[in-house]
């Protein structure tokens, strides 16, 4: 396993993922959507499929789209992608492969006073459960119109990635859409502005409190191929890892924490080299054993 991932490497991967998800930048000028075959596929991270530059589909949007159909009550296709990505990467996706995570981190780099949330505030992370079960799954199945089509509750009422990547660019380029904007668009714009402002002082507020995709991938953190491992013979419980963690995770006691986005700050901060982070591939393990 890799020992200490460098910050610059993570930033490069995050930016590469942003452009891999959204390569058709020229579409921002016209407001047209890409309509190629890659849109059959779901991206690992949150990336709106109505973004003019998007090459593939958002897994959360796709899940709601399938569930809101008249004849569907489940989605094996999207759940399959979530299982696959979750089992391979866990929340490594949040730390490395999510454009909206990158957006929040960019805002957090603005200098100034930063907030460290209390335990009570951190409990707001539980909001992700009703968001997932009521808005992502419940609303498409239960809030139906007269034709039997459900409502994509999370996309409609919360998703700031949709507002940022699709809502604003499309409103700017298409007069017909602009004329339809009303209270719902204003609400979504308010959510985006609030989360953007909060991101300047608090690390990744959307990921902490609202993101259903992070919630799902968190369930896989203990078993995913990408892992954090603690060498207990080296760990002195000095707490350097906890102090360095922007999500306030006690990683030396809980390396499989569902909140951990695998950014690697803890591994870099550990003075004893007790934290290793990387893909737990059997062949590389065998090599390590041989070397020792």
């Amino acid at each position: 396993m890799t020992r200490t991932p460098k910050i610059i490497n993570r930033l490069i991967i995050q930016v590469a993922a942003l452009f891999a998800y959204n390569p058709f930048l020229h579409n921002f000028l016209t407001g047209e959507l890409y309509r190629g075959g890659s849109k059959y596929l779901c991206t690992p991270g949150l990336n709106c499929y109505s973004c003019p530059a998007a090459a593939a589909s958002c897994p959360v949007g796709s899940l709601q789209a399938v569930l809101s159909g008249r004849n569907t009550i489940t989605s094996t296709y999207v759940v399959g992608f979530l299982l696959l990505y979750g089992a391979l990467f866990g929340r490594f996706i949040c730390g490395y492969l999510c454009p909206f995570g990158l957006y929040q981190e960019a805002l957090y780099r603005i200098p100034g006073r930063k907030l460290i949330p209390s335990r009570k505030v951190q409990m707001l992370g539980l909001l992700r459960y009703p968001i997932f079960f009521l808005l992502v799954v419940g609303a498409p199945l239960l809030v139906v119109d007269t034709f039997g089509n459900g409502t994509a509750g999370f996309c409609a009422w919360i998703c700031p990635a949709g507002t940022l990547e699709a809502g604003i660019p499309l409103m700017l380029t298409q007069q017909s859409l602009r004329s339809l904007a009303g209270i719902l668009f204003q609400w979504k714009l308010f959510v985006l502005i609030l989360l953007s402002a909060l991101s300047v002082v608090l690390y990744r507020p959307f990921c902490r409190f609202l993101c259903p995709l992070g919630l799902i991938y968190g369930w896989f953190n203990r078993i995913s191929l990408h892992q954090i491992k603690i060498d207990s013979s080296r760990c002195t419980t000095c707490g350097a890892c906890v102090s360095s963690c922007k999500l306030q995770i006690s990683i030396h006691t809980n390396p499989g924490s569902s909140e951990c986005i695998r950014c690697g700050d803890c591994a870099r901060a550990c003075p004893h080299g007790a934290i290793s982070i990387g893909f737990d591939i059997p062949t590389s393990q065998a090599r390590t054993v041989t070397r020792n």
Binding site: S50, V66, A152, C159, G162, A166
Partner: peptide, 16 residues
């Protein structure tokens, strides 16, 4: 279904 949704503007996503 995913493809058909992804190639059209999603009105929910953009706040309409």
């Amino acid at each position: 279904i995913v493809f058909e949704k992804a190639i059209r503007v999603c009105l929910e996503c953009i706040g309409l």
